[in-house]
Nucleic acid binder design. Structure first.
Length: 965
DNA sequence: CCTATATCGTA
DNA sequence: GTACGATATAGGA
């Protein structure tokens, strides 16, 4: 115990306000309780403890206390009734956090001190004094300038938020005098924030100069008539008393009657379970995990503290839907209503798209960047000359910082007149490179949250300008997570829905069809209202949707499965995949030849030429002129000429429909793949860059477009040839890794089916096992036809089976199909239970969930239209299965890149096809890569979830996709 | 010129 | 029976 005691005094009250203002104002617990400030505060405390002597303070404390301002007036109000009188009341959503922060301090086993009639600063001053007297060192954790008067040898200030140490030197720098003269300077200069009057016309600079000259306030006031400057002299004389009062106000009392002696502040050991229990109750998942790890606490075994929050009533989630429909006035608003209220408030603000600023100079731009820095978030939208982010050029950027406060920064607009040569750059635009540099600072600033709609586009575009946007929120993803199944998530749709405002259509500024112009040719007068409005709308949508995230309990889906996947997909898109033009062109030729031959035969059989590609003409020939028996009808009443109908006719011995089926296959392959794909080869990169949509499907699957690389043929031999055109670069291989039967495995887990689980554990052929169970055929005597039936039923189950559908699929009667299904349910009663439970859940709550909590809504599940209702029921049965599998692969993708680089592998993830990932990897790294990929994919649900069924991944490497698959 | 429909490629 | 996107045709604007 030879070490010198060291006391930490933490200025709690100032931290509360700083944490509150530093974080986006929307952090809430799942029941809506605002906890942003508590979160910031807890993180600060934890960092202080966890960093220990490695942190900014550099020493470990022996004693610690957190000091708060008590409620109500202090002795200073008796001295000067205007003291802090202009302070607005604390924000509504901060009020319930005051008590919680005190609870937090206690959970950390730290003394928590406040005293009526005194400010925290006075208590800190008194403790400092006493500690010094007893030979201890003191560190004040805070940044309030009023505390700076306490700095002296043995007393140091540390601002942990700015990671700054404030010693005598820093104080002298700020006030121009040594710390012991700080009060003299403050007495003269006053403080508008605290309403300390000071002497008019004297600021810190002048005050420091005067104090350095005269020594102290009293001496100065005595000799004031000797001051040369007339106005200053007069003011010093006239306001002498005011200065004395000011000094009294800023001088910190050092003789406060302390409620606890220094000994009582001695550090106690952290109690892991106690702290974890508290953090868990507040749903601070990351911090809970960190604390649990550091204190070796088993977080899962600790029960969350039950919180009692003054001024707050936790919502009953079950009551939420009722209260939404409730008649006004009969209920106190709960937190869920608060998110709704926010939506209503922001939705009610009118939008005036003529009020936006066009930013034309760096000075103007800087004002916006400063504002973004000050508030910590900004809505961003880019304008370009193409929908393809891999080829688009940046044309302008719009920003919004408040509803209605938005701007457009044109950067590359050209005058449209100059005909085919185009005009030059429009005057009055900031040079592109200069603006990009300035914007880069803001867009990469970790303290500024960037808010966008469909940011994958903007981040991909800007990554080509060497800008890596972070951190970010995406309103497209927010809406998707909250409302999948209810409506689309495009900005225009969301704007009309939430803001009751129809944004200016793109067509209105750029025209449409042949006369459409690119955005760089749009006049600035038209461009600004359009572009800035997008940023304005995006910001408002964020303000409405972000609070709902916690209120609806969707934070973890958003933060684990959506937001982190966006940069992963952006990189996959940017990498692209190598596609061999020659192979495709060769295939096109082959397909064309085949089509030509078939065409001749078909026309010959028909007796006259017609457009084979026209279902209408084909129907007329088949069912009109040739008088074949028409099978199915189409939605609009026309004869169906679908492949299944034509195949039935062919089976009856008709040549023509058989030839048409062949022709159609070739036509499809040629037009959709071999002819179309080469147009997607990027001239610069020589690769094909698909675009993945994170928010296109209701279930959580991705969608691929432009081109769609998730439907490249594989089932027929001719089609598979197209896959040989997807190749690895020289010296590389393509690896295809796909989950085996992931949806059936997910179903076995969710519905808890013992036979299925056993079969997967034993690595059995699942369809054969199903067939064996259903038809009582031993596995080793299984025939292909029986297995095929079982396979169809397994798929049918996943799709929300109907006798009609199964009959169709297997070409059997509905009665027979019904018998199969009944047999299946007899053998696997758990599946029927699962399906009934899922339908019930959908009917009662309007949505179903995946195993990771993704919600899929079915607003028409109780429809009176049986077709609609049945359809929604099947979809609701399918969604948790398909969606859970999709979530698993999402988790794997989010982790994959780091896992590969941690293993020093240079494999690049290129494509995703629902249950398959494609990588491009140097030949020498193939085996190691497969190991890593398999581990990540097979363990993707963990640690959030341990499936009761093993996941299996098949992986293979080859020179092209066909051979790797 | 634009949109709806039919068809078919994938998981 | 689920979930998608691309293509060509056809018909109304």
């Amino acid at each position: 115990m030879s070490e010198k005691p060291h006391l930490f005094l933490i200025d709690g009250s100032s931290y509360i306000f700083r944490a509150y203002h530093a974080l986006p104002p929307l952090t809430r617990k799942s029941d809506g309780l605002p906890v942003g400030a508590v979160s910031g505060f807890c993180n600060m405390l934890w960092k202080l403890i966890a960093d220990g002597d490695k942190g900014i303070v550099g020493v470990m404390p022996t004693h610690v206390a957190v000091i708060f301002d008590a409620k109500g007036d202090t002795f200073r109000n008796a001295i000067y009734d205007q003291y802090k009188a202009q302070r607005p009341p604390a924000p509504e959503d901060l009020v319930p956090q005051f008590g919680l922060i005190r609870d937090a301090v206690r959970a950390f086993n730290i003394a928590c001190i406040e005293l009526e009639g005194y400010e925290a600063d006075d208590i800190i001053a008194t403790y400092s004094e006493q500690a010094l007297a007893e030979g201890a060192d003191v560190t004040i954790i805070g940044s309030d300038k009023d505390l700076m008067q306490l700095v002296r040898p043995g007393v140091m200030m540390v601002d942990t938020m700015k990671n700054k140490r404030i010693g005598e030197e820093e104080v002298a720098e700020k006030f121009g005098v040594s710390p012991d003269k700080v009060v003299e300077v403050q007495a003269l200069a006053g403080d508008s924030v605290d309403n300390v009057p000071g002497v008019p016309g004297i600021g810190i600079k002048t005050a420091a100069q005067l104090i350095n000259e005269y020594g102290d306030l009293e001496t100065l006031l005595e000799k004031a008539d000797g001051i040369k400057q007339k106005k200053r002299r007069e003011n010093l004389i006239e306001f002498a008393e005011q200065a004395r009062i000011s000094k009294e106000l800023v001088y910190l009392k050092r003789d406060v009657p302390l409620p606890l002696g220094l000994d009582a502040l001695a550090c106690c050991d952290l109690e892991g379970p106690k702290l974890v229990s508290f953090l868990k109750a507040l749903e601070f998942t990351t911090l809970t995990r960190r604390v649990a790890e550091a204190t070796e606490t088993e977080a899962a075994e600790v029960e969350a503290t039950s919180l009692e929050v003054a001024g707050w009533e936790a919502a009953d989630p079950a009551a939420a839907s009722e209260s939404a429909d409730a008649v006004d006035g009969d209920k106190t608003p709960g937190p869920l209503d608060l998110a709704a209220k926010m939506a209503a408030d922001i939705g009610a603000l009118p939008i005036d798209n003529q009020s936006y600023q066009t930013v034309r100079s760096m000075e103007e731009l800087q004002v916006w960047l400063d504002e973004a820095k000050r508030i910590g978030y900004v809505a961003v939208d880019t304008e370009t000359d193409s929908l393809d982010a891999m080829q688009a050029n940046l044309v302008g950027v719009s920003l919004a910082t408040e509803p209605g406060k938005a701007c457009y920064i044109p950067l590359a607009h050209v005058s449209g007149d100059g005909d085919m040569f185009g005009g030059g750059l429009v005057e009055g635009q900031i040079p592109l490179t200069e603006a990009v540099t300035a914007l880069k600072g803001m867009l990469e600033d970790p303290s500024i949250l960037k808010i966008g709609q469909n940011l994958k586009y903007d981040t991909l575009l800007l990554s080509r300008y060497d800008i890596e946007i972070a951190p970010f929120d995406d309103t497209l993803l927010l809406s998707y997570v909250l409302d999948a199944g209810k409506h689309g998530h495009g900005m225009d749709e969301l704007s009309e829905l939430w803001l009751g405002h129809k944004p200016i259509p793109f067509k209105e500024v750029a025209g449409s069809g042949k006369s459409q112009i690119t955005f760089d040719k749009v006049e600035l007068e038209k461009a600004t209202p359009y572009a800035a409005e997008d940023a304005d709308v995006t910001l408002r949508l964020w303000m409405i949707l972000k609070p709902r995230l916690a209120a609806d309990g969707m934070t973890s889906v958003y933060e684990r499965l959506e937001r982190p996947l966006l940069p992963v997909l952006r990189r996959m898109e940017k990498r692209g995949v190598s596609v061999d033009r020659q192979i495709l062109s060769q295939l096109s030729g082959t397909f064309a030849q085949g089509m030509a031959g078939l065409e001749e035969e078909i026309h010959g059989l028909a007796g006259s030429p017609f457009n084979i590609g026209s279902p209408k003409q084909l129907g007329d020939i088949l069912f009109g002129e040739m008088g074949l028996p028409g099978g199915k009808k189409t939605k609009t009443g026309a004869w169906s000429t679908s492949a299944s109908v034509l195949e039935d006719l062919a089976a009856e011995g008709h040549e023509l429909p058989k030839k048409v089926v062949e022709w159609r296959q070739l036509s499809k392959l040629k037009s959709t793949y071999t002819d179309a794909l080469p147009h997607f080869i990027n001239p610069e990169t020589k690769r094909v860059h698909t675009s993945y949509s994170l928010a296109a499907t209701s279930t959580g699957r991705l969608a691929s477009s432009d081109p769609n690389l998730q439907n490249i043929p594989v089932r027929t031999e001719a089609g598979r040839k197209i896959r040989t055109a997807f190749v690895a670069e020289n010296g590389n291989k393509l690896i295809s890794a796909d989950y085996s039967q992931i949806e059936l495995r997910v179903l076995a887990h969710m519905a808890d089916i013992p036979q299925l689980k056993k079969a997967f554990e034993d690595g059995l052929d699942i369809h054969a096992m199903t067939a064996s169970e259903m038809f009582h055929v031993p596995l080793d005597e299984m025939d292909a036809a029986t297995r095929r039936r079982a396979k169809a039923i397994n798929f049918g189950i996943i799709y929300g089976i109907s006798a009609f559908g199964l009959a169709n699929q297997l070409g059997i009667s509905r009665g027979e199909a019904k018998t199969y299904i009944d047999t299946y349910f007899e053998r696997f009663p758990g599946i029927r239970d699962y399906m009934e439970a899922t339908k019930k859940a959908a009917r009662e709550q309007g949505y179903v969930e995946t195993i990771f909590g993704r919600k899929i809504h079915y607003p028409e599940i109780n429809s009176k239209n049986p077709n609609m209702r049945n359809f929604q029921e099947r979809a609701a049965i399918n969604a948790p299965i398909q969606g859970s599998a999709a979530d698993i692969l999402r988790r794997a993708m989010v982790r994959m890149e780091d896992a590969l680089s941690d293993a020093s592998l240079s494999a690049r993830m290129l494509l995703q096809v629902h249950d398959e990932l494609i990588f491009e990897v140097p030949e020498g790294e193939v085996d190691d890569t497969i190991k890593v990929v398999r581990t990540i994919m097979e363990n993707a649900p963990m640690p959030a979830l341990q499936l009761s069924v093993p996941l299996k991944v098949d992986a293979e490497a080859a020179d092209n996709w066909d051979e790797a698959h």
